[in-house]
Structure formats: C-alpha cells, structure tokens
Design a protein around this nucleic acid. Structure first.
Lengths: 239, 239
DNA sequence: CGCCGCATTGACGTTCGTCAAGTCTAGTGG
DNA sequence: CCACTAGACTTGACGAACGTCAATGCGGCG
C-alpha cells in the first residue's frame, strides 16, 4: 500500500527477453518504455492486488516471488500459481475489469506497472506487442491445462516431483542452479497448489530424501537425481 | 476431415451476442463477417484439431458439443473442458503456433473458422474486437482457476454438484431448461474432467438420486433440488 | 535467549480407486 | 420384428492413498 514510483526503462532491463517481445525497432521500444512508467515495491506478505479490486494494469515481476490464489465462499483457498521474475500477473482481471484472485508477495518484490489501456492502445500500433500479449495469455492457458492434468490424474509423489522439476527449470532459465533451490513458499502453500495437505507434502519430501533423490533441509532443497524425479512424473519413460 | 465450406454471416447469427463483441457499427460488423468466411462440420467422435497440429484459426462453435483434452506422455489423459454453442476453442494454440490439446466433437457439430492472422489484423483496427479477444482469453484463464479450485480442494460430491450446476447454467443461458439436461459425455469423460474415476461418478449420481436431489436415467438428468446442489458445493451458504 | 510459526512424524480414519460381476440400451443384422 | 452385441453404466467388496488429529522438533527473528 505504499506505491513507490521509480522511472525505469524496459529497453535496458535485463529481463526484457522474458517479459517483452523481441525484434522491435528503437522507436517501438521507446513507446513500450512509456507504458512501463512506474514500478511498485511490494513487501513480503503484502498483496499486489486482491480479489474484487478494480483491474487497471498488468504487472511484470522485476524481482521477488509471488503466489496467486482464489478463495471459495466457504473459506477454502487454492493457490493457482507461483510467479517469479520476468513473469506477468493480473491477466485474470481483464474479463470483468476486476481481479478475481489475490496476488501476494512471498518475498520482498518489485513489479513494473503496465496500465492495460495503454497496452491495448499500443498493441494496435505495434503488432509485435499485440502478438506478445496474445502469447502470454495463451501460455497461461496452456500452463493451467498442465496443472489440471496434475491435479486430476497424478498421485502425491508425481505431483511433487513435477512441481520441483518445473520450479528448478524456471529458475535455471533465470541463471540459477539446476539442482539447488530455496522454496519461497510454505508446505501448506505447496500443498494448496498441488491439491495435497501440508503433511502429505512433508512426508513426500521425506520419502524423496530417504530414496536419495533430494536433500531437504526446511526450505532448502538440493536435487540429487533429476532423472529419478523425471521417472516419477513419467513412469513410462526409461531414462 | 471433410471441411465443408459454407458462406455465412456473423451479423445475422443468432449466437452473435455469445461469441462476438457488441456495440459495433455496420461497417465493423461487415469486416468481421469477412473473417468468419468458412464453416466446418465435425461428425460425432471426430477431432476438430489434435495436439501437435499447426494452429491457424480459432473456432466458434455454432452447433454441437465438444470436449478438449490433453494427454501426458504415459497415456493418461485429462479432459480440460466441455464446450458448447457460442464458445470459442483453440486458444491454446496461439503460444507455440501448434495446438497442445485435442478437440473432439461429442455430437455432430458445426464451427465457424476464424483465421487468427485475420483476427489479429482486424483487432488492430477495431478496438471492440481487440477487447473482445482479450476478454475471451481472460475468461478462459478465470474458468481454469475455478477448475483448479475444484480439482484441488473439493470432494467427489462437491465436484459433481458444481459440474451439474455449471452445465445447466450455461445451457439455460442458451435457452434450455434450468432443471433438465442431457449429458453429451460419458461417465468416464466426466470423471476425467473432475479428477474422479467413472465408478465414483456413477456412485455419486446414484447417491444424489437416492437423496432426491436429481433423477438420473443414463444420460438424462433432471435436477429436482437446485438449492441442495448449491449447498453441497458451498456448505457454508444457508439457502 | 526465548518465542512463535513452520515442519516433521506417528497413529488412525475416510474417501476414493480397483477389480469384478452384472444390467441396461441403442444400434445392427437376420 | 426381434434377437444379438458392444459399449456404457451400475453396484458391491475390498484395499491403498491420502487426510485428520496430535505430539514433537527446529530455526529464525526480535
């Protein structure tokens, strides 16, 4: 609730290739810089937006880590995703001009605020931007299909293995280790995302550790046998 | 595999308000008619598109009923949605120019073929169309959040109750009964969508019937107590 | 240094999946 | 017109996986 306003430039952002389209000329890049005029800091535990709030902007994560979650009327809630640097959140708000989920920072974070009206206006001019927006939304739809497959048909070990592989792959794409990661979320949040109770998440971590597949020390995870995790997710594949 | 080509006009289509934006002037409507130049018939059991095929077009369903599903490498598959007249399918293909799921007709169907390149070009001119496309994609994202909540946190009875309420609500919006419906999909397909085995779906139907909440005769379902279904989905609410 | 939230682990219960037998129905062909 | 068949559906008995409840451990932050 303390929106810092710091002028920045996409054109010089090291996350450019993650959140912005490639192959634009100098003039187009400059126009995009205009859109992302403001950054906002979000403290750990604070919400970037909440269910019901008016939607005005998409947010590109510059630093930090978020979860998005929805709540059913009777209080249960479901984590719908974990987002890291270079990813865009807020797409849920477009359809009704109101956000339909909460976005909460799991560590101190900073986002680029992109007013959606400006995005729409500019993407009528710059077809590369238009295409990029469409792809971001389509990617989210495809990602959610994958989560539905996970929730609908996998057992606990498969879910957790898929989760770890996905996380580490995304972190690796950002220059982090392929085998070591620090979880920014609690067991309960992992469980909510995976459709499991926190105890089951904990037990499954312990099982993986017993089997020598990972080392787990609270939120610090080291993957010892990536292939073993892959085999758990996909028993058919003989790696 | 027998693409019928029949010229039609959105401007005179009775599903216009479902799949196309409102508030356009005559000239804009005419331009949209240009986009939807072709219809295609799909026989029951046939695929409109399959995972891996090149993506070129979105499809607006004119008549009939579809399921979309994805397959994990080891053969399991997950139904990701059921689509009816006025709904748009194919959004998953945008991100990689290839479809990532199968769309199969559950009864003889007819779709309007909308080449995506044309949609993008025209939506640069007609901001109402641009906005509409964004909303369709956002709506799909929000719908999938709801499915994640269902798969991640609901029990069998809650899932089936939510499923029935959702179906009947969408059918009602299309002028059908609020209380009676014919299921176009098998128990197995319902189960796949809801993350349950077909036997569990069948048992849960039987339980609802015993409790006097629905009458079930194979695929014909009559809802006797809508409020009871709502209470099952959302125990807190005292209707 | 002590507290509080998070994580782990164990014992037990519930829900749903599995396996199997049997029924219904729509469609086919005699 | 009716018998036959294949696929879909129902139902029961049983077991496995995961949830629930509860006790305990650990570590980070003030």
């Amino acid at each position: 609730m303390n929106p810092q306003t710091i002028k920045v430039a996409c054109s010089s952002c090291n996350l450019r290739e993650l959140c912005m389209p490639l192959g634009l000329n100098a003039g187009e890049l400059e126009q995009i810089d205009e859109i992302v005029g403001v950054r906002r800091k979000v403290k750990r535990g604070a919400a970037l937006f909440r269910n019901g709030e008016v939607f005005t902007s998409l947010f590109a994560i510059r630093t930090g880590f978020f979860k998005t979650s929805i709540a059913s009327e009777d209080g249960r809630d479901q984590v719908t995703g974990f987002q890291m640097a270079g990813e865009v959140i807020g797409l849920d708000g477009i359809v009704n001009d109101h956000h339909t989920c909460d976005a909460v920072a799991l560590e101190d974070a900073e986002v680029c605020v992109m007013p959606f009206a400006d995005i729409e206006a500019l993407s009528r001019e710059v077809s590369g931007l238009q295409r990029h927006i469409h792809k971001i939304m389509s990617r989210e739809i495809v990602r959610e299909h994958g989560v539905m497959l996970l929730l609908g048909s996998m057992r606990a070990e498969e879910r957790l293995a898929a989760f770890l592989l996905n996380l580490v792959q995304r972190l690796h794409a950002r220059g982090f280790s392929q085998s070591e990661l620090i979880l920014r979320m609690t067991r309960e949040e992992i469980g909510s995302y995976l459709g499991l109770k926190l105890e089951t998440v904990s037990r499954t971590f312990s099982k993986f550790a017993e089997d020598g597949i990972v080392e787990v020390k609270q939120r610090h995870v080291r993957i010892l046998e990536t292939d073993a995790l892959r085999r758990i997710v996909n028993p058919q594949t003989l790696l």
